[in-house]
């Protein structure tokens, strides 16, 4: 059966069916750092779900929340947080998701985070402009005291405010653009206060980028761009509708979404190895498509 648009329900089923691969502690003495990024992205999805009434009683919210909570309080993860300053922002993003579903002792956590903020290099380390927005989003979400510039000021420093013709934009540029929009709009929960002309340019760039990545079959970016359009409340374009139909058509019966066509895992892998490769390829598109489906 062909679905017109991607289904959040089926995407969530697939994600929950692969929770073991999100777990950085699964059967290992040391933390698997490669799994921290997927886990943090899963936490962002959890935050989005927690803000939608219809998902609040969903069994999968507590299943995902349990995994994040279990890893969050482990001694290894605490050590990781203290010893690696680049662990701060992802840690806060995971903490926010747990706060949203009341699965964390927030008072203790907030004291710890505020102390780390004061006594570490978190506020001084160099970041790309979209990462500054990410930091601000995390600090605000955790209710921490900070003196970061406003969203508008930070947004003006990102590629979203300095657009070049899209044919020259790299995949990295496209990712930084979508992430700037995600964090500046709190994943579609806050309106973006920008001038009409700038909004128009941004909308044109998003449409052009959708054209490009629909052409090359980079489904991960197609999902990101679709969600970015949704965050900007700019859904009225043919590219948006085409992207929706494409992702809906390509969603697997198990709920997974394809990653970039060019990076498709080789079918010569077998068993658990194939499952892991397929997970690495699919999980990000699946999470972003689910975020889109929850927000739209």
């Amino acid at each position: 059966m062909i679905h017109i648009e991607p289904s959040a329900d089926r995407a969530l089923d697939w994600l929950v069916g692969h929770l073991d691969l999100f777990n950085p502690m699964d059967g290992n003495v040391k933390i698997q750092r490669s799994r921290l990024k997927p886990l943090t992205e899963l936490a962002l999805l959890l935050t989005c779900m927690s803000m939608r009434e219809m998902w609040q009683g969903d069994r999968r919210v507590s299943v995902v929340g349990n995994l994040i909570a279990r890893t969050h309080v482990s001694q290894d993860m605490r050590s990781h947080l203290i010893r690696h300053t680049d662990a701060f922002v992802p840690h806060v993003l995971r903490a926010i998701s747990l706060k949203q579903i009341a699965m964390i002792d927030w008072d203790d956590e907030q004291v710890l985070l505020q102390r780390l903020l004061r006594c570490s290099n978190v506020l001084f380390t160099e970041r790309l402009p979209f990462q500054e927005l990410e930091l601000r989003y995390a600090l605000e979400g955790a209710g921490l005291v900070h003196s970061e510039p406003s969203v508008a000021t930070l947004f003006r420093r990102t590629i979203a405010s300095h657009l070049c013709p899209t044919v020259y934009m790299t995949e990295f540029d496209a990712y930084t653009l979508t992430h700037a929009i995600f964090y500046a709009t709190s994943f579609g929960h806050e309106p973006l206060a920008i001038a009409a002309i700038q909004r128009q340019r941004l909308e044109v760039a998003l449409r052009d980028l959708l054209d490009i990545y629909l052409y090359v079959g980079q489904w991960d970016l197609v999902a990101e761009l679709l969600f970015a359009c949704c965050c900007l409340a700019t859904r009225d374009s043919r590219q948006y509708r085409e992207a929706l139909i494409a992702l809906g058509t390509l969603q697997g019966v198990d709920g997974s979404m394809p990653g970039p066509a060019a990076a498709r895992p080789l079918m010569e892998h077998q068993g658990e190895q194939l499952r892991e490769r397929f997970f690495d390829w699919s999980y990000h598109t699946t999470i972003v498509a689910a975020m889109w489906a929850l927000t739209d």
């Binding site: 899209t166 044919v167 054209d211 490009i212 629909l214 052409y215 090359v216 043919r238």
Partner: peptide
Amino acid sequence: EFRLSQVLLGSLHS
């Protein structure tokens, strides 16, 4: 025009 413009951008990018 829509379809060809889409292919134009995509083919230049590729």
